[in-house]
Amino acid sequence: MSNDSTTMPTVQQYDTLIIDGSSEWRTLCENKTHVAEFPDKHFDLETVLRAGIRPLTVSREKSFVGFFSPEKFESLTGVMSFDDMWGREISRNLGVYIVSWNDHFFVLKVDENGYYIIDTLGERLVEGCEQAYILRFDNGSCLTASGTSQVICKGKECCKEFIKRFLAAIPLKELETEEQKQVVPYYSLHHRLQIEFNFCSTV
């Protein structure tokens, strides 16, 4: 994917990318070594990069890891929060990130005019949705509270609030409820609240 702010896939190009990606994933699933390491077939980014499927590199210097609302959990004391990571790093680095969260990847494109979320998992938007989607957040964006006209955020930073308040809201609430009963194991928090932004470019 180009870092050119004017370059976004058309519907037909997006369909082709999804079809090609599904084919490459099935090829990875035929590798017994990969499946032995990832029985659920949710391969990590390192495995995909080593497979050489696309001429893609990841800059570790511009890649970051954070957690949603770590202040709410005892075992996450001192880790970087999603809010801090976004404000200090993500919003200042123009380019493309492969975002890893909750056993799934999506793409975040950052340019001077806004943010774009590119995702194949429609279930993230609406339960039962099977369609991929592209969301654009720019200076004209407005995020309101569900079922009301109350404005939560305006402008392109609605993207951050969308990720935090919409995508992460359910697992965060569930883990908060568990934490009230007993300390939630670090593994569970890591699995459901950690989000990784991998800054990438084509070779």
Rank of each mutant, 00 (worst) to 15 (best):
E89Y: 14
Y186K: 15
F73G: 03
W101D: 01
C142G: 06
A145Y: 10
V11G: 03
L28E: 07
E123T: 12
L125C: 02
M80C: 06
S75A: 08
L45W: 00
H42F: 08
K62H: 10
H104P: 01
C159D: 00
P55H: 07
L135A: 05
L172N: 09
G21F: 08
K72D: 15
L108I: 09
V184D: 01
G155V: 00
W25C: 10
Q12W: 03
N31Q: 13
D44W: 03
G114L: 02
S146P: 07
L135N: 04
L167S: 05
D83F: 07
I152R: 03
L172D: 11
F67S: 02
C129Y: 05
Q194M: 15
S146K: 14
C153Q: 15
Y116S: 12
G155S: 01
V99E: 01
L167I: 14
S2N: 06
I90R: 02
A169N: 10
D15M: 14
L121R: 09
E179I: 10
S146H: 13
S22K: 15
R60Y: 08
I134R: 05
L175A: 10
G21Q: 07
E89F: 15
D111W: 06
S22D: 12
E176C: 06
G140Y: 04
Y14F: 15
E174I: 13
A36C: 13
F106G: 02
T16A: 15
S69V: 05
T6V: 12
W101N: 06
T47W: 00
Q150S: 13
V184Y: 00
F137G: 00
F166L: 10
V203A: 13
P9H: 09
V107E: 13
K62L: 15
T57H: 04
T47Q: 04
D111Q: 08
T177Y: 09
E74L: 10
I134C: 08
S59N: 14
E46Y: 07
V96D: 02
I117A: 05
V183H: 11
N31E: 12
C29Q: 14
